[in-house]
């Protein structure tokens, strides 16, 4: 078997734990879309064209909350900003790939596949990195689309699915992602500000409160960073 194929297979195999781990979320997502009164094609299109789990979940809550298009787009952009970091991290390796593969491969750069790819680069190195990456990402991508379809087309057969509270899946995951970071003053202040503004401003139309709250939170964070820098300079002086 040529090395390329075994590398692609290794990519697929190493991604299996994450593929399996995200499967329930794909089913829940598909079901959530139809239980929000949207067509099942919407679920499939988001999974196939956008392919970004947290942004997909948020877009459904934004759309059913009557958000304006620019708010949906801007929220997606902000939620996905962390991927710029992944893009920068793999760049020294991907710069040796042919341009068409870089253009296509960038589409599949999710949190999960980045984590798997990064570990491969650190343990095995750059050998057969492209087939490995494709094996990992394409299997992960197809699984995500497939289980989204299962949720979208079979989910509405579950009696009372709209009242199950499937939207809680996203909220719980986000809360669990934030909490471990709240162990220093600055992130606590950022979260407290964003949370209070979001609470007070939730009545604003088009879900503008979300953007306002995020901006306020980041502004407090930047302000505290500046304070800390100034104090450090004064101490050194």
């Amino acid at each position: 078997m040529p090395d390329r194929f075994s590398a692609a297979f290794a990519g697929l195999r190493d991604t299996i734990p994450l593929t399996v781990g995200t499967t329930p979320f794909a089913v829940i997502f598909g079901t959530l879309v139809v239980s929000a009164g949207l067509p099942p094609e919407m679920a499939l299109a988001l999974s196939a064209i956008v392919f970004a789990g947290s942004a997909q979940f948020i877009s459904i809550s934004l759309i059913s909350g009557g958000a304006a298009l620019p708010v949906i787009w801007l929220t997606t952009f902000v939620i996905n900003l962390r991927h710029a970091l992944y893009s920068a991290t793999v760049q020294p390796v991907t710069k040796r790939w042919p341009l068409p593969w870089r253009v296509v491969g960038a589409f599949w750069l999710t949190d999960e596949c980045f984590a798997v790819f990064e570990r491969r680069l650190q343990t095995v190195g750059e050998r057969d990195a492209l087939p490995y990456y494709l094996g990992s990402t394409i299997s992960f991508y197809l699984n995500w689309i497939g289980w989204t379809a299962v949720g979208a087309y079979l989910g509405n057969r579950i009696p009372g699915v709209a009242t199950l509270g499937l939207d809680f899946a996203m909220i719980a995951t986000f809360a669990a992602m934030i909490a471990p970071q709240l162990k220093a003053l600055t992130p606590v202040a950022v979260a407290a500000t964003a949370g209070s503004v979001a609470w007070v401003a939730q009545g604003l139309p088009y879900k503008l409160g979300l953007m306002l709250a995020a901006l306020a939170g980041v502004a407090v964070g930047v302000g505290l960073d500046c304070c800390r820098r100034r104090m450090a300079v004064e101490e050194a002086a």
Binding site: F77, A84, S87
Partner: peptide
């Protein structure tokens, strides 16, 4: 699928892809 939903998806694709492609494609 309404045009608004397609527009939402198109914009979300752009917002996601440009970030992922930033360094990989533009160097």
């Amino acid at each position: 699928m309404t045009d608004t939903l397609w527009l939402a998806i198109l914009g979300m694709f752009v917002a996601t892809y440009t970030v992922r492609a930033s360094f990989i494609v533009f160097g």
